[in-house]
Amino acid sequence: MLAHRFLLLIAVAAAAASGIASAKPTAYEALADYDFPPGILPKGVVAYTVDNATGAFTATLDASASGAGSSICEFSIEGSYSLRYQTKITGKISPDHLTDLQGVSVKVLFFWLNIVEVTRHGDNLEFSVGIAAADFGIDNFLECPTCGCGFDCNDLLMLQKAGAATARLRLRGAF
């Protein structure tokens, strides 16, 4: 009887260990397999797929993560760039290359342009909109931005805690 319980215990432990070992990595961890930092995707990826044979991928963002009840994740970075992610992002991934991207755009002047390709060159990421490209240091993408506030979420929370009067004063000073 004791031997039977011991064998059952070993079987349960082996099943648990294999379940832990086969757990699917997060989308952010999967990016690392292709030499990309996690911050090229915002927080809130709820599902993803990668076809290892073709590199085709999809990433699905939580629609409620936008902060505004919108199905689009939008935020500004350092006040100079506005980024927009659809709830479904698709493309092809291979080491150091994201191509055929759909669902990610950047605002340049007054126009929204689709980011169609991201290439890693050493410690830089090159973002291409087809007709132009821009390089950014990889250290800018070590942290994932949050929909609605990007990397400035602490500032937004401080404004909300300070109350509406402080926010109105701040807006009047901006004009």
Rank of each mutant, 00 (worst) to 15 (best):
G79Y: 02
I89E: 06
V45S: 01
T60W: 11
L159F: 14
D96L: 06
D33G: 02
I138G: 09
A17V: 04
S71M: 10
S94Q: 02
N124D: 05
L2G: 15
D152F: 15
L9Q: 08
P145W: 12
Y85L: 04
W112M: 01
Y81T: 13
A17Y: 05
G91V: 03
P42H: 01
M158D: 08
D35G: 00
G91Q: 04
L169P: 05
F75R: 04
A65T: 03
G173Y: 10
G39L: 00
A27N: 00
A164Y: 11
Y34F: 07
H121G: 11
C144A: 12
T26M: 00
E117L: 04
T146A: 13
V118F: 10
L113A: 13
L8S: 07
G137D: 14
G55V: 00
A59V: 06
D123M: 12
D100Q: 00
G55T: 01
F6Y: 13
S64G: 07
L171T: 14
S82M: 08
S82K: 15
C144V: 13
P95T: 00
T87V: 11
V104K: 03
Y81P: 10
S18D: 09
T166A: 12
S80K: 11
A56Y: 09
D123V: 14
K92T: 14
F6E: 14
A30G: 02
M158Q: 15
F36D: 00
A59C: 05
E74Y: 09
A133Q: 14
R168Y: 12
I93K: 00
A56H: 11
E29D: 02
T99S: 10
Y34N: 01
S94R: 05
W112N: 02
S64C: 08
D152L: 11
N140Q: 12
A3E: 08
